[in-house]
């Protein structure tokens, strides 16, 4: 897309810097941490011990991890130049609707495609470890998504800009200032295009990233469905989930 007159190259460079800095500062694990932990796997005994936990205990554990990750994502959003200029209603809508998407993008940094494992609580876990959740379809969808996204081999810069672009989706329901968000998202996408152009792979790689959006949305919806079902079966446990988790994924 041509650069609109209102958006100078300087502005695009500024947003790239802001988003990338924000991503690096708010990643739970640095690339060095991930390299160091790459071969730290759950033993078969440890996997079995997770599998024999009750659904309530395993859900609680996952809810706590997701909540921790959300706090970092809120901080990521806050540090994106322009996000805090939006009204607080829109900031909350964007975070509620987009934090799971950003979490999924961030997850692919912590995914090892060689052995199909994902970093969970300090060690790499296979999908079978999450059996006690009783959500095999959701777990496989998350692992498949991480596998497919990691195939694109995004750089940290690209991942940062893609996360910001997804977070700043102007099509979320109940937003007040759609135009302002669209402008900000356009700027982020232009920043992403600029980064990709430097690599000489622009259109193809961007198209691959954007093609993952429907899968992301379907995983987010599946997570909400599973949570609602869990809430029906175990209302007391669901009530003890971290308040931030309940706030973000509440109806």
């Amino acid at each position: 897309n041509p650069v609109p007159e209102s958006c100078s190259l300087l502005e695009i460079e500024h947003i790239i810097q802001s988003v990338v800095k924000s991503h690096i500062e708010t990643s739970q694990y640095s690339t060095e941490d991930l390299k160091r932990l790459a071969w730290s796997l759950y033993s078969p005994e440890e996997t079995r011990s997770h599998q024999t936990k009750s659904a309530e205990v395993m859900w609680q554990q996952c809810a706590i991890h997701i909540t921790n990750a959300i706090q970092y994502i809120v901080e990521f959003a806050k540090r994106i130049s322009g996000f805090m200029d939006l009204c607080q209603n829109d900031q909350i809508i964007l975070l509620k609707a987009g934090c799971m998407d950003v979490l999924l993008i961030r997850m692919c940094r912590a995914f090892n495609p060689i052995n199909n494992t994902l970093l969970f609580d300090g060690k790499f876990a296979s999908p079978q470890l999450f059996k006690a959740l009783g959500c095999d379809d959701l777990v496989s969808a998350v692992f498949d998504f991480a596998k497919n996204l990691s195939r694109i081999q995004m750089s940290e810069e690209e991942m940062a800009l893609f996360s910001a672009a997804v977070l700043l989706s102007p099509d979320r329901q109940w937003l007040t200032d759609v135009q302002k968000i669209r402008k900000l998202q356009d700027k982020v996408y232009m920043g992403l295009q600029r980064c990709l152009q430097k690599e000489g792979v622009s259109d193809e790689k961007l198209a691959k990233m954007v093609s993952k959006l429907p899968a992301m949305r379907s995983i987010c919806n599946l997570h909400i469905d599973k949570l609602e079902f869990f809430r029906l079966v175990h209302p007391e446990t669901a009530f003890t989930f971290p308040p931030l988790y309940r706030e973000v994924f509440g109806s």
């Binding site: 706090q71 809120v74 901080e75 805090m84 909350i92 308040p243 931030l244 706030e247």
Partner: peptide, 20 residues
């Protein structure tokens, strides 16, 4: 506002509750 109390707080805090 009450419904999103924690998100409001996190957004208003100049420092994050997480150890960044």
């Amino acid at each position: 506002k009450e419904k999103h109390k924690i998100l409001h707080q996190l957004l208003q805090n100049s420092t994050s509750p997480v150890d960044l």
